[in-house]
Amino acid sequence: MKSATLRIYYLEAKFEFLKAIRVPAFTLPSLIFPAMFYIFFGLMFNSGSHPQHAAYLMATYAVFGIIGPALFSFGVGVAIEKDQGWLQLKQASPMPISAYFFARAVSAALFGLVIVMLLFTLGALFGDVRFTHAEWLLSLLALILGSLPFAALGLLLGLSVKGQAAAAVVNLIYLPMAFLSGLWLPIQMLPDFFQYFAWIFPAFHLAQIVLAIQEQSLGYPIVVHLLSLVAMTLLFVALAMRAYRRA
């Protein structure tokens, strides 16, 4: 790519990030909630249970954590800017519109990274979580890359719904999906039916991949979860492209 194009990507990402951190009332909760939940359910009310509990929930709350910025940045952010005509003005300009989506993905990944680092630190300090460096790194990478399917899902939502309704719609998908994918409680604690039902959620597959790194997954081959995620991502992207052309 030419450096002028690179500069567009860089500036888009930079200002996207600035935009996000300048609304702390909106940003801070998404950073703090996963850590807070983890402290409550993973660390404080964990006495007497299994020693792997802390590591297990660290992984699933990290998944919960990275989904938030991805879904909200794309689902709510795009919906609002679409309604405000900002997206259209960019479309009319000579910028590659991919830079806009790239910037949102980077910004969401950066927020996701902060959340994951916070959770890892809590787990390591207070949950006695011990992984090899390779396992820590793999978990981190899987989580950051794992935000992409949710960015795609968010984009689909953002392009499909009105800005005012977006936050409600995103929450309506985000929270039930988190619970039913076993991000708040280990999936095995849910009735059997839900363990099969969870297969329709991308969050379930990402959680299983991250858990597989610490050998706490349900035991299905990782590649099955990977393929499910890729397939879901492609579906979301295809639907989002259709919505984009209509918007």
């Binding site: 680092m117 890892f120 460096h133």
Partner: peptide
């Protein structure tokens, strides 16, 4: 990021 990973405790 690398320092963070290296600082995390290992078995």
């Amino acid at each position: 990021l690398v320092s963070f990973i290296l600082l995390l405790p290992t078995p």
